[in-house]
Design a protein around this nucleic acid. Structure first.
Lengths: 134, 134
DNA sequence: TCTTATGTAACTTTTCGTGTTGCATTTATC
DNA sequence: GATAAATGCAACACGAAAAGTTACATAAGA
């Protein structure tokens, strides 16, 4: 699997679920289809579960399925559930060493925050039901 | 130094140069001030030199200085010179495995490209001379 | 000619995401 | 109840990428 592929894995899985929302899939099945490991799948989908996008049933005949209708899950929901923060560095604000440094840094940081916000807005405009129109 | 700090290092250095554009600084001086290594400094500033933002003089009394006036260097110039591509993954388009997967993926990819473009636009609105107003 | 600077290649170290193993827990089925 | 099949989670191994380091060639002023 390639780097920072959590979003890819999530979209791939959710895409299939949106096509056939009544089918429950196990981590092993999903992993097989995505070419990765069941534990990795549980790690990623676990975040989606915590965000209320998926439900996970334990035990026999358990597995994963959508917690809502596809049209009620936007790409922003997925993105935010994964704590991706592609743009803004999710920074652990380090000590301001010298004043000159941080004038430009803060300018850039502000712009990145605005752009991050803009990204989420755009992602919110598309839901999983988009997949059904193709 | 922290991860992906090339932009930080570049901004820090350019910030100081914008305050005092007549002073030539060596890699060692810059590295000392930025808490890193002279070779790392040359690697990062070398990209800014290639982009025409800085000049580097070899030999005795050599060093780095701005190649243009501070107001003629925007944050976008710096960002682009470093090949950062924070938002869009600068992707080596991998093989489209299954069709369902790539509907959502492409949607996201398109949004990321738009957002990346938007980022550069915003960065272009600020120049290094901003530092002189503080 | 010597000193001081950049330019660059090669290697090491660090960091972080992914992959893997192992086991506890839960739940349907026999 | 026992068993099989699933998730939950912790701990460790692996690998790639960025940063740091060493070494040396090259250039230019003193």
């Amino acid at each position: 699997m390639k780097r920072n592929s959590r979003l890819s894995l999530a979209l791939h899985t959710l895409g299939h679920m949106a096509v056939d929302p009544d089918k429950t899939q196990t981590s092993a099945q999903i992993a097989g289809h995505a070419g990765t490991n069941p534990v990795v799948v549980r790690r990623v989908l676990g975040k989606l579960r915590d965000a209320g996008l998926l439900t996970a049933e334990k035990g026999h005949s358990g597995g994963w399925r959508l917690a809502r209708q596809p049209d009620a899950i936007t790409l922003a929901d997925v993105y935010l559930a994964l704590d991706e923060s592609i743009v803004a560095p999710a920074r652990a604000e380090d000590a301001p060493t010298c004043s000159v440094e941080h004038v430009l840094q803060r300018k850039v940081a502000t712009i990145l925050e605005e752009v991050e916000h803009n990204l989420v807005e755009r992602l919110a405009a598309t839901s999983l039901s988009e997949i059904q129109r193709h």
